[in-house]
Amino acid sequence: MNREALKGHLDLLILSVLADGPLHGYAVIDELRTRSGEVFDLAEGTVYPVLHRLEVAGHLSSEWGEVGGRRRRSYRLTRAGSARLEQQRASWQLFSASVNTVLRRKPWPSTP
């Protein structure tokens, strides 16, 4: 999939992935790739600015832990993030349904 097209929807996708529970950055990308059937394949490092921006905005919070001797930061949705996710999801569904309607529309006068 076109990476530029994907970037515009990263906020929604990341919030959606984190709605199921806390994840660290690698797991977020892994989940995105798996859920999309390997279609969403972006430069992995570009996910971190999005995660950090969502955290600064208060939509995510993060915690540090240690795994295998390494420090690991995991992110989880805040209440504000959940509200943002629902808002963006509704907006996307409306947009998506509208685009589909336009694409399915037959030229007038339509033939049976």
């Binding site: 806390p22 660290h24 208060g58 915690e63």
Partner: peptide
């Protein structure tokens, strides 16, 4: 603060903690 408070871990997170490895 309430709006920014993280959700409590879901019940199925209880066993594995907050970090998924």
């Amino acid at each position: 603060m309430r709006a920014l408070t993280p959700h409590a871990p879901a019940p199925d997170d209880a066993g594995r903690g907050p970090f998924i490895t």
